[in-house]
Each structure stands twice: as structure tokens, then as C-alpha cells.
């Protein structure tokens, strides 16, 4: 598998993703600058990393959607290429319309950085195939605007199409408000597009290099 990670001005998890793929997943990866007008010809998986692209001015991810590389990313995704947006990358995917819904300010206003429990809600995707259905894994979050929101109709569509990838849960796998760190609708932490080749998630699997290493498998396409 050949990976690429997009670098926007203000991306700050690009290098973390690069190292997670190269050093942990042991696959090839290259950086792709936001002003490029084309993607590398040999590319299977594209990561849109976390950070504060363009300073997150206006709204998280709102300026990144106008980046020069963006139409290429959309074309790549629509052609079936794998795309993973993490944290700010998830925000960029919703802003650019590759994923439905929006990410709002955390319920308690504050930025939160900590390990949380995630339930793998749908294992029928190339990102989640290596997990057991309903398996509880630990992945860290670090964001101020990660409260997932979508209208009623949108939620219905997500549920009908099995697009909910991950949900915040308790250690034993229960959906509770105490274990929903940012107030996301239905405790949603990550979603797929309909074809399940695009994944957006707020938690950072690339940060599982020391502990909870099993969660790195999200980045391993199979």
C-alpha cells in the first residue's frame, strides 16, 4: 500500500501520521503539499491529518476546502481511493462535503486531550475489518471542536447505510453521556461515506505508538 499525507499550512499531525505509517504500519508514505495540483500517481491511501489548517480561522477546515489540492482529493475519493481524515482532517472532510454532518464546539467548551474508549460500530470496511464487531478500543482525543452533529434525516441515512464507524463508550462498551467527551450526537466519533472508502474520525489512531497499539490497525487498510 502506498500512503500520502496532505500538508496544509497549520497541519501539525502530518509528521505523526508519516511516522505511524512508516515506522509502525511499515508502509510507504510521502508528504503532499497543499499547493500541488495533482496527487502522486501511485497512491492507495490518503491521510488528511490533524492540526489547525490555515489557523482554523473562520471555522475549522473551512479554508482548507479551497486549497489547490482539494479537487484532486475529491476526485481521488470519488474514484474509490481510500481517504482517512483525522481530527482537523475529519473537519475538512465534512466542510468539503466528502462526509456528511458537521463538527461543533465541544459541549463543555474546553479543549480535551485524553484517552477515551471507542466502540467499533461497523466492522464492514477496509479500515475496521481487523476488529471484532462492537469491540472496545482505546484511542486518544485532542480537540476543541469535535461534537459531531447531523440533522435527523442525515442521521437516519447514516444509520441505514451503516456509516457510523466509531462511537464513544464506557470501558464495558455502553453508550453513556459521561463517556461522550464532547457531546457528539449519538456519541459519534467517526463515520464513513456511503461507499466506505472515506473515513473521518476525531480520535487519533496515529498516536497509539506507545500504548493501545492495536488501535493503529485503523490506519492499516485490508
Amino acid at each position: 500500500m502506498n500512503y500520502g499525507v496532505i500538508v496544509f499550512p497549520g497541519s501539525n499531525c502530518d509528521s505523526d501520521c508519516f511516522h505511524a505509517i512508516r515506522d509502525e504500519i511499515k508502509a510507504d508514505i510521502q508528504y503532499i503539499w497543499h499547493e500541488e495540483s495533482s496527487l502522486p500517481s501511485k497512491l492507495d491511501v490518503l491521510i488528511i491529518p490533524g492540526g489547525f489548517s490555515y489557523g482554523d480561522y473562520l471555522r475549522c477546515g473551512a479554508i482548507a476546502k479551497f486549497a489547490k489540492i482539494m479537487p484532486e482529493i475529491v476526485r481521488f475519493a470519488n474514484g474509490g481511493g481510500y481517504v482517512i481524515g483525522i481530527c482537523n482532517g475529519f473537519q475538512i472532510l465534512t466542510e468539503s462535503g466528502l462526509l456528511p454532518g458537521a463538527l461543533l464546539r465541544n459541549q463543555f467548551q474546553k479543549f480535551i486531550c485524553k484517552d477515551i474508549f471507542l466502540k467499533v460500530t461497523n466492522t464492514e470496511s477496509s479500515f475496521t475489518r481487523d476488529f471484532q464487531k462492537q469491540q472496545v478500543i482505546t484511542v486518544p482525543i485532542a480537540h476543541g471542536e469535535g461534537r459531531y452533529f447531523i440533522d435527523k434525516q442525515g442521521l437516519q441515512s447514516l444509520e441505514d447505510n451503516g456509516q457510523i464507524a466509531f462511537q464513544y463508550v464506557s470501558k464495558s462498551g455502553d453508550l453513556t453521556s459521561e463517556d461522550n467527551p464532547n457531546g457528539s450526537l449519538k456519541s459519534i466519533a467517526g463515520i464513513f461515506n456511503k461507499n466506505k472508502n472515506v473515513l473521518g474520525m476525531m480520535p487519533h489512531p496515529e498516536r497509539c505508538n506507545f500504548v493501545n497499539r492495536e488501535s493503529l490497525k485503523i490506519l492499516k487498510i485490508s
Binding site: 501539525n12 499531525c13 509528521s15 505523526d16 511516522h19 505511524a20 490533524g50 474546553k110 479543549f111 480535551i112 486531550c113 485524553k114 486518544p140 485532542a142 487519533h204 496515529e206 498516536r207 505508538n209 506507545f210
Partner: peptide, 14 residues
């Protein structure tokens, strides 16, 4: 305090 800080970015924090 520290949960308001991203203490993991750069993935060096062992």
C-alpha cells in the same frame, strides 16, 4: 489543567 493541553502531539510523549 493538562487535559486542556495537547500533551501527545508529535507522538514522542512516552
Amino acid at each position: 489543567v493538562y487535559e486542556q493541553y495537547d500533551y501527545m502531539v508529535q507522538t514522542n510523549t512516552e
